[in-house]
Design a protein around this nucleic acid. Structure first.
Lengths: 112, 112
DNA sequence: TGTATATATAAATATATGTTTATATGAGAA
DNA sequence: TTCTCATATAAACATATATTTATATATACA
């Protein structure tokens, strides 16, 4: 698909390093990233996240709390279940771009 | 400015969580992020990074080593100076988008 | 060769973070 | 109320990470 888009020049000069680092750090853990990948497919209760990832429930809860603290997920209760979902679709966009970048950086050099 | 772009749907299903988390973690420190912001303006020797940031030289060296380990910077020696530059312009694009997201997430809720 | 400068490395320390195990909370059903 | 299920919290622990201080390396120049 093709689209016309307004190209905004990338600019970091006025970025807030604290805020950006905080978000990046929240995404900088393999388990949290996998949670995000799971939630990218839709809203889910903790039990399903646990089941899809194969990690312990307290560990999932811990990381979900971190993601919530970073405002990356929204939480909603429904009966005994607590549903988590991504707070914004751009999270997926950004991580998708980061994944492409990672793949290319790795392709050019051999090891991390 | 306007541009025609091919819109690639965001997809994390095949992302490599280890690689992405590794990159995100490398960007998930305030000092490293500030180094990236400095290098976004161009290639620089360590001394100038130190001077612009107001941190100690060993601390700068330490974080530059981490950024290098994450393949985010390229290194080049010229006489007694060692120049660092960003390995890829997309680093700036991604962080710029992350900054926009951070600002909006913060605008909607009150505190991190 | 000796000295100064630029940068890296090492050692030491403090703090933060991820994980496990055990327990508490809270909602619904019997 | 009591039981069960879903989830959160707490405690304990191990590991990783950021920072400081001190020192080493390497290049240029006198």
């Amino acid at each position: 698909m093709e689209k016309h888009v307004k190209v905004i020049p990338d600019d970091l000069t006025n970025a807030d390093p604290r805020a950006v680092a905080f978000l990046a750090k929240a995404m900088g853990d393999e388990n949290r990233l996998r949670i995000i990948m799971v939630l990218a497919k839709g809203k889910k209760p903790v039990s399903r996240i646990v089941e899809e990832m194969g990690i312990s429930q307290p560990l999932a809860s811990h990381h979900l709390k971190e993601l919530k603290r970073a405002l990356l997920v929204k939480v909603e209760r429904n009966g005994p279940f607590i549903y988590y979902e991504l707070a914004d679709q751009r999270i997926v966009t950004i991580l998708s771009n980061l994944n492409i970048l990672a793949a290319e950086l790795l392709a050019n050099r051999k090891a991390f």
